[in-house]
Nucleic acid binder design. Structure first.
Lengths: 208, 208
DNA sequence: CCATGCAGTTAACAACTGTTCTCTGGAATT
DNA sequence: AATTCCAGAGAACAGTTGTTAACTGCATGG
C-alpha cells in the first residue's frame, strides 16, 4: 500500500507531470535535442529555475518520458502474444490493439519513434533497453506456443525482435495516417496485418 | 555530356558541399531540428549570411542531404535484388553490402535513420518519398523472380516494403555496433541475415 | 576593356538560451 | 509554537540565435 502523499509532495508531482505533459506536446513539431528548458517552463506557466527541482536537464526529462511511454506497456504486449487462438486471430487482435493505442496516445508513440534514433544518447539508450525487454518478454511468450517446438532461444529472440520492430513500424505508420482518411488508415492496417502474417508463415516453416 | 563549370559556379558548389559536409558532421550528436544555421557556417569558416546563397533554411539543407544520402543508392538496391543465385546467397550479399555501406557512409545512414521520424516535416516527406521509390523498385525486381509467380502487385509491394524497412533496421543496427567489437558486429550481421531469411521463407509459402 | 552579376563579408537588431545566486512563503518536523 | 526545509520566484549573467541591410571584390558576358 502506498503512503498518502503530503500536500507538499503532491504539488511537486503535479508540476512535474505538467512539465512532462507540456514537453510531450512541444515535441510534436521538433526533436528532443532542440527542446529548450525555458520553452517547457513557459508552457507550464512556471519560472525557468523551477525546472531544476525536477530534472537535471531536458535529456533527463526525456528519459522520464521514455519510462512514461513504454513502462506501462509490458502487460499489454505479453497479453497479446499469449492470447489463445490461431495465428490470424492473434495478428488481427495485435494490429487492432496497436491502432487503438496510437489513437489514444499519439504523442507518446511519436516520441518513441522519433527519439529511438534521435540525437540524445541517454534517451536512445533508455528506449533500446525497454525495447530489448519487450523482445525478451515476447520471446518467452512465444516459447509457450506449440509452434515453437524445436526452436533455440536465440532464434526465438531473433523472431521476437522482428515482431517488436514491426510493431513499432506499424505504430509509426498509423501515426502518419492519423490525420488522413479512414480508407487510408484501413490500408495501413491491412498492410501491417499482411506483413505480420508473412512473418508468421516464415516462422511456421523455419525449421527443416 | 556536362558543361564544364566556370570558376564562379565551381567555387559556389564547393562551399555548398562544405556546408552539407559540415552539417552532416554536426548532426552526429544532434537532430536536424536543433541544427543552427550559424553553427554550420562557423564550422565551414564562412559568414552566416553566406548560408542564404545556398539554402533557404536548415530544413532546406536537410532535404538536400536526403538527396545526397539516398539518391545515389537506387542502382545498388536494384542490383542486389536482381542478382542471380538462390535466396541465401542473395541475403548474404545484401547484408554484406549493407554493412559495407554503413562502414563507408556512417553519417549518411545515421542522418536517414534519425530524420525519418524526426521533427522536420519536409525532410520526413523527402525520406518517405525516396523509401517509397525504393520499395517500388524492389517490387519490380522481385516480380522478375520465378518465386513471384501468382503474386499480386499489391502483395509484392507489401513484401518490398518489409524488405526496405528491414534493410534500414539492419543498417541502423550496424551503425550502433560500429564502435563495438568485431564479435558484436558479427552478431548483428547474423541476426539480420536470419531475420531476412525468415521473411524469405514466409515469401516462399505465402500462396496456398 | 568596361559594366554587370553575384558569392561572400561586415555590422547590427531584438529575441532567445542555460545557469547562478538570492529570496520567499508555506508545509513539515520537532 | 518555534524551527527547519524546500518548491518555486525573481533578477541578472554572458552567449547564442535567425534575419536584415548595405558593402566589397572578382569572375563573367558584351
Amino acid at each position: 500500500m502506498s503512503h498518502t502523499l503530503g500536500i507538499r509532495q503532491a504539488q511537486k508531482q503535479k508540476t512535474r507531470q505538467a512539465l512532462l505533459d507540456s514537453a510531450l506536446g512541444l515535441l510534436e513539431h521538433q526533436s528532443l535535442s532542440s527542446l529548450g528548458l525555458r520553452e517547457v517552463t513557459r508552457a507550464v506557466g512556471v519560472a525557468p529555475t523551477a525546472f531544476y527541482r525536477h530534472f537535471r536537464s531536458t535529456a533527463d526529462l526525456g528519459v522520464a518520458l521514455v519510462e512514461e511511454a513504454l513502462g506501462s506497456l509490458h502487460p499489454m504486449i505479453e497479453d497479446t502474444v499469449s492470447t489463445a487462438g490461431d495465428s490470424d486471430e492473434r495478428i488481427a487482435r495485435a494490429v487492432e490493439l496497436i491502432a487503438h493505442h496510437v489513437g489514444a496516445h499519439p504523442a507518446h508513440v511519436r516520441f518513441i519513434a522519433r527519439e529511438r534514433h534521435g540525437g540524445v544518447q541517454p534517451v536512445r539508450d533508455a528506449i533500446r533497453e525497454q525495447l530489448a525487454r519487450f523482445a525478451e518478454e515476447v520471446a518467452h511468450a512465444l516459447a509457450e506456443h506449440p509452434e515453437s517446438a524445436g526452436w533455440s532461444d536465440d532464434d526465438l529472440l531473433m523472431l521476437a525482435g522482428l515482431y517488436v520492430d514491426h510493431m513499432l513500424m506499424a505504430a509509426s505508420a498509423f501515426l502518419e495516417a492519423l490525420d488522413g482518411s479512414e480508407a487510408e488508415r484501413e490500408r495501413v492496417a491491412r498492410t501491417a496485418s499482411r506483413q505480420m502474417r508473412l512473418i508468421s508463415i516464415g516462422r511456421r516453416h523455419w525449421l527443416g
